[in-house]
Design a protein around this nucleic acid. Structure first.
Lengths: 196, 196
DNA sequence: CAACAAACCAAACACTTGCTTGGTAGGCTA
DNA sequence: TAGCCTACCAAGCAAGTGTTTGGTTTGTTG
C-alpha cells in the first residue's frame, strides 16, 4: 500500500517538481496535470509513484521537518551560552530557507489549511515543538541576563519565527545577499535595534 | 455590466462573508457554494450581486488598499519627526490588522498568485508604493541621525513589512494584548533590540 | 391595485479536478 | 530467450467547479 521512500531517483525528481509548483502556485492551485506536464509525463502516470496528490505534500513536508527539527534539537542540547544558541537557531533557520526554499514556502502557506485534516495533524505538533524550542532559548537568555527582562517572551517568539520564515517570500539563493549576510543583519536588528 | 458599489447592505454582507472564507480557507479553496451556504442562499444567487468570484476578491482587496494607502500618504506628507513617522506607520499597520483582519490576510496569502493575472496588476503597484513609503521613512530616519548608518535599508524595510503583516496570522481582536500593546512591544524591539 | 425592482430559487451546462484501469515499451536478470 | 519489473501511456469516470438561464417571491411606490 504505502510506497516506502527509497533512493529512487525518479521519485525524488517528481517530488522536487511538485514541491516547486506547490511552493509557487499553492497546493490547491496546482493540479496533478500541472505536475505531470512539468515532468513530461501524463497525469495518470504519477499514480505509479504516489498514492495521491496529498501524499506528495505529506512526504515533502514531513521529511523536511524531520531534518530541521533534528538541527534544533542539537542546538538546544548543546552547551553554548544562551546568546550563541539563539544565534545558532536563527542561522539554522535561514540556512533552511536557503537550502529548502520550496519546502519552507509550502509549510508557511499551507500548514494552516492542511492542519485541519487528520493526516496532517503532525504539522500542529511540530508547531508546538518549535514554540517550545524558542521559548526555551529565550527564557535561558532572560535568566542569564543576556536579554532584557521587560519582554513578552511569547510575543518575541512570534516576531522571530514570523520574520525569519517569511523571508522565504523574497529570498532567492545566489542573490546579492547570502543567507549568512541576511542572518547577520537580522541578528543585529533583533539584538540591538535600529536606532543609533 | 460592472455593478457599482452602493450602500447596498446585502452586498456588503455577502462581501464580508466571502472575505471571512477567503481569509481562512484561501481563495481557491473557497467555492461559490461555500459562500452561498454561509449566506443562506444558493450559489447561483450570488451572481445577482457580483459578476464573478474573482470580482469579489477584487472589490475586497482594492477598497481596503485604497483606505490603507490614504493613511500612509497622510503620514508621509505630515511634518512629524522621522522617528514619530515610523512609529505612526507601524501603528497604522497594526490598526489595519485589527480592523480589517480578513482583508489583510487575503492580501498576504493570495497577492502573489493573484498578481499574475492582468486584472490584479494593481496589487504589484501597491506593493511598489508601499516600498516607497517605508524607504522614504527609513531614509529620513538615517539622514536625521535617528537611525543607525550601517543598516541595509531594503532589508530593514522587508523585515518591518513582513513582521508587521504576518502578525495577522495569530492576532485576534479582543485578545489579551490589544493591537496597540503589540505595536508598542514591536516598536520597542525594532528600535532598541532585545538585549539588555 | 398595477407596475416594478431587488433578492432569490431551481435546474442545468461545460469544464476541470483527482484518480482508476488495462495495457505497453524497454531494460535487466536467471 | 523467457520472465519480470519499472516507468509510462491512453482513455475514461465520477465528483466538483464557476457560471448561466428563466422563473418566483416579496416589498415598495405611483
Amino acid at each position: 500500500m504505502t510506497s516506502q521512500a527509497q533512493t529512487s531517483t525518479r521519485r525524488e525528481e517528481l517530488l522536487a517538481i511538485a514541491a516547486e509548483l506547490f511552493a509557487t502556485k499553492g497546493f490547491k492551485n496546482t493540479t496533478v496535470r500541472d505536475i505531470a506536464d512539468a515532468a513530461g509525463i501524463l497525469s495518470g502516470s504519477l499514480y505509479h509513484h504516489f498514492d495521491s496528490k496529498e501524499s506528495m505534500v505529506d512526504e515533502i513536508l514531513s521529511s523536511f521537518q524531520e531534518e530541521l527539527f533534528g538541527k534544533y534539537a542539537e542546538i538546544v542540547a548543546g552547551d553554548a551560552d544562551p546568546r550563541a544558541k539563539l544565534d545558532a537557531a536563527v542561522r539554522v533557520s535561514f540556512e533552511a530557507i536557503d537550502q529548502h526554499r520550496n519546502e519552507v514556502a509550502i509549510f508557511q502557506n499551507e500548514a494552516d489549511y492542511l492542519g485541519t485534516f487528520d493526516r496532517f495533524a503532525y504539522l500542529a505538533d511540530r508547531n508546538k515543538q518549535s514554540r517550545d524550542v524558542w521559548h526555551a532559548l529565550l527564557n535561558e537568555g532572560v535568566s542569564s541576563g543576556a536579554l532584557r527582562q521587560d519582554l513578552d517572551i511569547e510575543l518575541v517568539y512570534r516576531f522571530i519565527r514570523d520574520t525569519v520564515w517569511v523571508a522565504v517570500r523574497w529570498y532567492r539563493p545566489g542573490a546579492k545577499l547570502s543567507h549568512t549576510d541576511i542572518a547577520n543583519q537580522y541578528l543585529t536588528i533583533l539584538l540591538d535595534g535600529i536606532t543609533s
